[in-house]
Design a protein around this nucleic acid. Structure first.
Lengths: 244, 244
DNA sequence: CGCCAGGTTGATTTCGCTCAAGCAATGTGG
DNA sequence: CCACATTGCTTGAGCGAAATCAACCTGGCG
C-alpha cells in the first residue's frame, strides 16, 4: 500500500538532471556525460532506508538527485552521531572510493530520495579523462574538511544550548521562513533523536534543551514545527557562549 | 644567543629533498620539479613560532621538511584545540588555498622545523600541468577528512581517559619504544597544555587524568617522559569505553 | 632576587548522562 | 474492534565527570 515514488527511475538522464549544475559533474563534456549516463543507476529510497553501511565495501559513489540524506557514524558502543546532511547535488561516499577504503560512515535516507549510483570504474575513467573533475572533488573534500573541523571545535567548546541554536540557524537557511520582524517559522526535517545525534547529545538532553528554549521564550516547538520569536535570540545564544 | 638551525636554508633543493617521497610532489616530472624548486622558499622556525594565523589571507601552501607542527583552531572565546600534528612530508594550508579562502586554522612550530613555502600561483600552475598532483591532494584531503570525522565521534562519545589513552597510542607509533614485554617508553613531543588541547579538555583536567593513570599504575610521567607498564592497559582503556 | 609561565592540587559547581517511569500515536494480531 | 506491543518523546531523580575558581609550587630567566 505504499505509493511513494516509483522504484525504477532509470528513465532519468544525466543530460536532463535538474541538479547536475550543483554537482561535480557540471564540468563534464557531452561525451563524458554520455559515459556517466550509461554507467549510473538511479534508485528511490524511502525514509529510513539505508544507502550504505559503515564497513561495507565501497563500490562507487552516490549522487543525491532529490530528497535528504543523513550521514552517520557510530562507535563500537552503538552510540552514533549524525555527521552531516546530504542535499540534492551532494555526493556521498567519494572519500572512501578515492582512497579505496571501505565506507567509514553510513548513509540513510531521511526523506523520500532519488539517488544515483555510479560505479568506481566509471568514476575512475572520468577522473583520468577530465582532470577538472578531480579538482571539483578536491574542492568538495576541502569544504567537508572545513565543516568537520568546525564541528570538532564546536562540540568541545560550546555548551549544548549554543550548539542547538547553531543547528537551528543552519536549518533556517533551507527550511525556515523569516519575517521582517525577525520571527521565524521552521519546518524541521529531522526527528528529535536525529537532532540530538547532530549535536552529539542524548535524546533526553535534546528534550530538556527544547524545554529550556521554550521556558526562556526563545522558541515554541509543536511537532516538527518551530516558531522562533526572534532569530537574534539564537544568534545571541551562540555569541554568549563564545564569549561575546 | 639562540644558536638554532640557520635561518636561510634556501640552499635546499627539491631535487635532493629527503622528504619528497612522502609528499604530494613525488608525482612531479623533473621539469615540473624545477618549477617547484624555483617557486619555493624554505625557512626555519623555532618552537612557538607561528607559520600562519587563522584568518590570514592564504598566499600558498607550506610543506614540512623537518620538525613538528601543530595545527590549531580557536573560537571567539579564546578556547583553542589542537586539531592535528604535522610531520615531515605533510602539507599545510592546502585546504584554504584550494578553495581560495583565508586560513581557517593556524599552524605553529612545536619543534625546530624547516618548512617550505610554495606560492599559490606556482601550485595552480602545477595543478593544471599535472592532473595526478590534484588526485594526490584529493587523497590527502580524504585522509584528513576521515581523521576529522573520527575526532568528532571520539570527542562526543569517549570519556577523557579513553581519549588520552588513544592519544598516547597514536604518539607511540612515532615517539615510543616498545619492549617485548609490552612495556613502553615514550618521549612526548607535546606540553601538557597541548595534550589537553589535543583531546579537547582544560589543562587542569589533563593533570588529573595523568594523575589517575599513575594511581592506577598504568603509566608513570616524569616531565615529558612516560613509562607505560603495558600497552595493553591503554588499549583496554579504549575498548572499555567503547563498550568492550 | 623577583617575576612569570607551566603545571599541580583542592574545593565547589554545573552540565549532561543514566536510569526509570509514563504517555501519546501508531501498528498488529486475534 | 479491542488488547497489546512498539516507537518516539518527555519528565523526574540522582549521579558523575569535567569545568571553574583559586591557591600554590616549581624552574627558568631577566
Amino acid at each position: 500500500m505504499m505509493m511513494e515514488g516509483s522504484r525504477s527511475s532509470s528513465s532519468n538522464s544525466c543530460f536532463t538532471c535538474q541538479t547536475r549544475g550543483r554537482t561535480e559533474w557540471c564540468v563534464l563534456t557531452d561525451e563524458e556525460l554520455k559515459l556517466l549516463d550509461k554507467g549510473k543507476v538511479s534508485r528511490d529510497y524511502l525514509p529510513g532506508e539505508v544507502i550504505f553501511h559503515e564497513a561495507d565495501a565501497c563500490q562507487g559513489i552516490h549522487c543525491i538527485e532529490s530528497g535528504l540524506v543523513g550521514v552517520r557514524k557510530m562507535n563500537a558502543n552503538g552510540q552514533e552521531i549524525l555527521l552531516r546532511l546530504g542535499y540534492p547535488g551532494d555526493t556521498l561516499g567519494y572519500r572512501s572510493m578515492l582512497s579505496g577504503d571501505d565506507h567509514n560512515n553510513s548513509a540513510e535516507a531521511l526523506e523520500p530520495s532519488e539517488i544515483c549510483f555510479i560505479d568506481a570504474a566509471t568514476v575512475r575513467t572520468l577522473l583520468t579523462r577530465n582532470p577538472t573533475l578531480g579538482l571539483r572533488f578536491l574542492n568538495h573534500a576541502a569544504t567537508d574538511l572545513s565543516a568537520a573541523e568546525d564541528k570538532v571545535l564546536q562540540s568541545t567548546t560550546l555548551p549544548v544550548r549554543a550548539r542547538f541554536a547553531h543547528l537551528l540557524l543552519v536549518l533556517k537557511d533551507r527550511y525556515g521562513v523569516v519575517g521582517e520582524d525577525g520571527a521565524m517559522v521552521l519546518e524541521l526535517p529531522l526527528s528529535r533523536q536525529d537532532m540530538a545525534a547532530m549535536i552529539g547529545i542524548r535524546p533526553e538532553s535534546m528534550s530538556r534543551t527544547i524545554r529550556s528554549f521554550e521556558d526562556d521564550e526563545i522558541a515554541r516547538f509543536t511537532g516538527r514545527r518551530v516558531h522562533v520569536r526572534n532569530i537574534d535570540d539564537l544568534i545571541e545564544e551562540l555569541e554568549l557562549a563564545e564569549g561575546l
